[in-house]
Design a protein around this nucleic acid. Structure first.
Lengths: 356, 356
DNA sequence: CTGTTAGCGCTTTCAT
DNA sequence: ATGAAAGCGCTAACAG
């Protein structure tokens, strides 16, 4: 039964057969097709793979047989035989974060038309779990792995790369089968803070990311460099730690106010924490950008629709996904992997303003 | 090479070996393990699967061999033999939408510890493409399919269900191998509009979803029912069509103003279009909720952090994912699939206010 | 151009 | 309790 009662929805189904014990309309095999078309299995295979010339009449016979029987080659059998599963593994840290979404979209587009499918697993920001998931992918015989914001160390990546090619973001490695590339986070943060300084701000707070995260550390470095270059002293009270999530941005903002230190602008280490900071500001009745300027980092899709739209550092998330995919595919095929990731750039929207 | 130059990042790698032509540290097979442990392959298999009793000494020998050789069974071979790939297919419509994200998170959690992995494909809101993707999944021998917001018609689903069990959202089907359940969208919309009416609003605009979408149609129905019940005449000029995306919400809002019809509240058919509408309002200098009340539908994770936080109808996206997964797993195992999806509910946040 | 044969790595009767 | 042997569905020599 499946009935909707008022607002509740119940679903039930009677006891059905097991996947194992019911052949269903058991899918036809290549052998079935061969028999039906009156040819040998190899001929069918050859047509399927374009491996060799086949006479037109046989080809026609096979093609119609395939059509009639709605035959589709069993990918597991193909994979077992060819040693290629035609699937690649993607390791993300959070299956439902707009950050990874954009990259995944790039991967998806990069895979389009290649015959490859992807299985996505999450490391949940945890090195142990991440390594486990990678082992799982390897057991599944994925042909390659894309590691996004990996937590495991480079040596571990390298050892996995002994089994299958890996391309990873956020690390600078390069061997025969492992390739990594990282964005210049320090530079991005520098850009953000310099923008604020150019607008006349001198008291600029920073909501950092988790200290154990290299991207976060790089962004902090960019923040301090911009300040130093402008001859502005670093005030430790204006730097509070967040964890890249909305709630932490909100908390951080409140802590900033609690210190009593004056500031006219805040740079959040990522958009998500900027959203949280924005809410804290709203709750306090502080106007953005009139009273406080705010800049984020990432340029998530939603950042163009916040109120007001967020000034931020754009990460080419989609491109990273596409480029990583292309690179991996090339390595898998023994070609030279080469790619250029667009640089980080400042997107000035409406949360920053010149200090009068 | 992998070098970072200023802000640009270049990646290159020299020509490497093909996946095919390099055995790498070719993974050990079950046979290798058997030889090393001095037993037959069957014994190893039995230990791996717990299929039969094995003497303690042999078991120990095998286990250490497995450890030494870092053996992991080839899933393709296992799958081919057992007729189970331990993979399920997930069909979404947009690989990077917060809407699907939440559901995917539910699926991911539902799969945790089951040994199943998922391959996610996107139908891109297109029935043709969706059917294609499903065929691909079937060729990959997924053990079951979860179809989220499918575009294909029920008959097509049913025919696919002949090959593998399918559970789908947004449809009321129920056969031996196909199970669908849909949320009561009409009721949800009704809830939203009634809330507005209770707050004293009489002129309530509606930014609809695409007219060819059943969820959108249901929500429109709920809107009209609430109005009718309250004795408020439906004003066609207050209903404008959107397409569920931010930009369309923004456009719709502007069109609403262009009509010149007065209104004090707007109900957007989903959160994304509410975000767009919110921006249009901001641009026009219209305050929310002081001048105009706004309510959305979905309760995306971001909706708690908009400025101000969005009043909306909560869809139990995560639960839907989990429940669908459990149901599918049960069908796969020949058990009775049964589940209850939490009802839609109104979440009152800060974008609605009582009309003075 | 096409068929026959031998596996890919694993599980599973069937004997013992 | 354990091994031998057959085979899942496909591809790739190897003959012809």
């Amino acid at each position: 039964m499946c009935y909707s009662f008022g607002q509740k929805v119940f679903i039930t189904t009677s006891i059905g057969p097991t996947l194992a014990d019911t052949p269903r309309s058991s899918p036809s095999t290549l052998l079935d097709v061969a028999r039906r078309a009156g040819v040998s299995p190899s001929t069918v295979s050859r047509i399927l793979n374009g491996t060799a010339k086949v006479s037109d009449d046989k080809r026609r016979a096979v093609l119609t047989a395939i059509d009639d029987m709605k035959f589709a080659p069993n990918q597991m059998a193909q994979g077992l035989k060819k040693g290629r599963s035609m699937t690649i593994g993607i390791v993300v840290q959070d299956i439902s974060s707009p950050f990874f979404d954009e990259t995944l979209r790039g991967v998806d587009d990069g895979l389009k038309g290649t015959g490859y499918a992807s299985v996505i697993v999450s490391g949940h920001w945890n090195a142990e779990e991440e390594a486990d998931r990678i082992r799982l992918l390897l057991a599944r015989k994925v042909d390659g792995i894309i590691l996004l914001s990996g937590r495991i160390d480079d040596d571990t990546v390298l050892s996995f790369a002994g089994q299958r090619p890996i391309v990873s973001t956020g690390r600078a490695i390069k061997t025969r089968t492992a390739l990594g590339f990282k964005m210049d986070n320090e530079y991005g943060a520098y850009l953000a803070v310099r923008h604020l300084i150019e607008l006349g701000h001198r008291h600029i707070a920073f909501i950092s990311g988790p200290t154990n995260n290299t991207d976060a550390a790089d962004r902090l470095a960019g923040y301090t460099r911009a300040l130093r270059e402008a001859g502005i002293a670093i005030d430790a009270r204006l730097i509070v730690e967040g964890n890249f999530h909305e709630a932490s941005g909100m908390l951080a903002m409140n802590r900033l106010f609690d210190t009593g230190q004056p500031f006219t602008a805040v740079f959040a280490a990522n958009d998500l924490s900027a959203y949280g900071a924005r809410l804290a500001l709203y709750r306090k009745g502080v106007r953005v950008p009139d009273d406080i300027s705010l800049v984020g980092f990432d340029d998530l899709p939603g950042s163009a629709y916040t109120t007001p739209p967020l000034t931020t550092i754009r990460q080419p998330l989609y491109d990273i996904g596409r480029i990583a995919t292309h690179a991996l595919l090339r390595v898998i095929n023994g070609e030279e992997a080469r790619g250029e990731v667009p640089p980080l750039e400042l997107i000035v929207r409406e949360t920053t303003r010149r200090l009068r």
